[in-house]
Simulated scan of single mutants.
Amino acid sequence: MASSFVWSSIITELALPGAWGTFDPRGLDEEQNQTAVEALFQFLADFLQDRDAERDGLRIIFHDYSLRFAE
């Protein structure tokens, strides 16, 4: 997964692994759309929890993100 994807593509890829490239994210069927929407809100909740978990939560998130693409 490339870091230059728009958020909708990133959520679609994470929510529906292995399906990337087989459909247009704007053309999800009802079940795929529901899965992607549920994933979006779960990822958002996880982000907010991690961000607020400790004083430097946001700095840690950015640090971890940068390490992911350093390899």
Results as ranks from 00 to 15, higher is better:
A45H: 12
A53I: 02
L14Y: 10
D24V: 01
E54M: 02
R55V: 05
F62V: 11
N33P: 00
S3C: 06
Q34N: 10
L48W: 10
R51W: 08
G21T: 01
D52N: 02
N33E: 15
P17H: 05
A2E: 14
T12G: 01
I60S: 08
G21L: 05
L58F: 12
M1L: 12
R51A: 13
Q34R: 15
I11Q: 06
F69A: 02
V37M: 12
Q49P: 00
F43S: 02
I61M: 08
S66E: 13
T22R: 15
R59A: 14
D29V: 03
F43Y: 15
I11F: 13
R26L: 11
M1Y: 12
D56M: 02
Q42V: 12
M1C: 07
E71F: 08
F47H: 03
A15L: 11
R68Y: 09
G21Q: 01
A39C: 15
F23T: 10
G27Y: 10
L44N: 09
G57I: 02
Q49H: 10
T35L: 15
W7P: 05
S9L: 08
R26Q: 12
S8V: 09
I11C: 09
G27M: 14
S3D: 05
A39S: 15
I11E: 07
E71T: 09
H63Y: 15
P25G: 01
Q49K: 13
T22C: 05
D64Y: 06
H63K: 12
I10S: 04
F69N: 05
A2C: 03
T22D: 11
L40P: 00
I10M: 06
Q32K: 08
Q32H: 13
D46K: 10
F41S: 03
S8Q: 14
L16V: 04
D50S: 10
A36Q: 06
E31R: 10
F69I: 07
D46S: 07
A45K: 13
S4F: 09
E30F: 10
A70W: 04
P17I: 04
E31Y: 07
D56C: 01
W20N: 09
Q32A: 11
S9D: 15
G57H: 03
